Computed example of a mutant assay.
Amino acid sequence: MSDIDEVFTKLGFGKMQFIILFSCFNLQIWMTNEQLGFGVVIAGASCEMRIHDRRLAWLMAASFAAQMVSCFLWGELADVYGRRRIIMISSIVANIVSILSACVPEFWGFLFLRSVGGFFIAASVVCLMTYLSEFTKISLRPRVLTIMSFSLGLSMIYVPCLAGFLLPLRMEPSSWRILLLCNQVPGIIGIIILIFLPESPKYYLSINNQEKAMQVMERICRMNKGKEVTLNSLGVESLTQPRLRQPSQKHGSCYETKVLLLNHAKIMWFFFIIFFSLSGLGFALPIWMLRVRVLTATFPDWDTICSHMDEVSPDSRGHLEVLLGIPAHSEPFLLPVSCSAT
């Protein structure tokens, strides 16, 4: 029997892995659009949906709470029914729900659909990296997962650029609804590609389905090495996964997770702080965007700092110039303060 990781080393990183990476990369962009880019959508929807501070808190808390509650559930289901099946079903449902939320005319229906979408999108968050890594040989796994992380930055460019173009426009339907629909495009691309991709062979080995695992590996072999090359020609007749940990019958399926949390508590706390900080930014972004939008609408006029300095005494003005480092004959520069507020 051949170790499946050694077989992946023989097959290399070929066409199959590139297609899987492209699909997962698009799905990761879509997930980031839904999680962090949603704050930009709220900034555009605040007036039409009448989203004040309390409603904003409910909207963000419900969406993220649904993701947190469902994470362990989706992890267990992925081990039972397969990574690809869970990712595909949950992504299709989450995508449809997000499209429906762009058509809802009132806040409470919008809140309900965003919560349901958060519940289902957590499945892709949990399973996507696992699905990709199980098709990648061990030596390339860190590099491939690092490439996947670039999708977060690309999403943070994609959404604001679209928002900068769409939100200032006056149109029907509203520009924020068009933005929300555009955020679903990477997910639709990823789902369409995923339909034609195989299930993870390591999942088949975990449920003792040797035949299907061999069929998937044979397909990968022919795509990467050519149609004339087979697993038999490479000396592979059957597969094994020696590093697979079977669930403990004595302690239950979550025993390994409990041991990890207890034996590596310092590392877990370190990652918890990082995750808490990033999630905090995710929560804060919609509030900041909303504040900026309200302030720019409330104070449309701009004034120069020099005009404000003319209203103070000469001694105070000289002191301010020294503190700000302004030359005596410098050009005035703009300060975002309303003239009516002075």
Rank of each mutant, 00 (worst) to 15 (best):
Leu73Lys: 00
Lys225Ser: 09
Arg222Asn: 03
Thr9Lys: 10
Leu167Ile: 14
Asp3Glu: 08
Phe13Ala: 05
Arg85Gln: 13
Ser307Leu: 08
Ser63Gln: 14
Arg317Ser: 09
Pro186Gly: 08
Leu166Cys: 03
Ser279Trp: 06
Ser279Arg: 07
Pro168Phe: 12
Glu321Ala: 09
Asn263His: 14
Val97Asp: 07
Leu261Ser: 14
Ser151Lys: 01
Gln241Tyr: 15
Val97Cys: 09
Val294Ser: 14
Val229Asn: 00
Ile207Ser: 07
Arg222Ala: 12
Leu324His: 13
Ser139Tyr: 07
Glu6Pro: 03
Tyr255Gln: 12
Thr32Ala: 15
Arg83Asp: 02
Ile193Lys: 02
Glu311Lys: 00
Leu234Cys: 05
Ser124Pro: 04
Asn224Glu: 06
Ser149Trp: 09
Ala341Asp: 06
Pro332Ser: 14
Phe22Ile: 12
Ile19Trp: 10
Arg54Lys: 11
Met289Val: 07
Ile305Leu: 15
Phe119Asp: 00
Lys227Ala: 09
Gly44Glu: 03
Ala341Asn: 05
Lys15Ala: 12
Arg317Gly: 03
Pro336Arg: 15
Ser139Asn: 13
Ala61Cys: 08
Val7Ala: 00
Phe18His: 10
Thr240Gln: 15
Asn183Lys: 00
Phe150Glu: 00
Arg219Thr: 09
Ser46Ala: 14
Ser133Ile: 11
Val185Phe: 14
Phe283Cys: 04
Ser238Gln: 11
Leu180His: 01
Leu335Met: 08
Ile42Trp: 04
Ile287Trp: 15
Leu140Asp: 10
Lys10Asn: 06
Pro173Tyr: 05
Ala341Arg: 08
Ser90Val: 13
Gly118His: 05
His308Pro: 00
Arg222Val: 12
Phe150Pro: 01
Met217Glu: 07
Arg55Lys: 11
Val7Trp: 04
Gly282Pro: 01
Phe13Arg: 06
Thr32His: 14
Phe119Lys: 00
Gly44Gln: 03
Pro332Asp: 13
Ala328Asn: 11
Leu239His: 09
Arg245Cys: 07
Leu111Tyr: 07
Cys161Ala: 13
Leu234Ile: 01
Phe272Asn: 07
Ile42Cys: 05
Ile138Lys: 07
Ser98Cys: 14
Asn183Cys: 15
Gln17Leu: 04
Met129Gln: 11
Val41Cys: 12
Gly37Ile: 01
Asp315Cys: 05
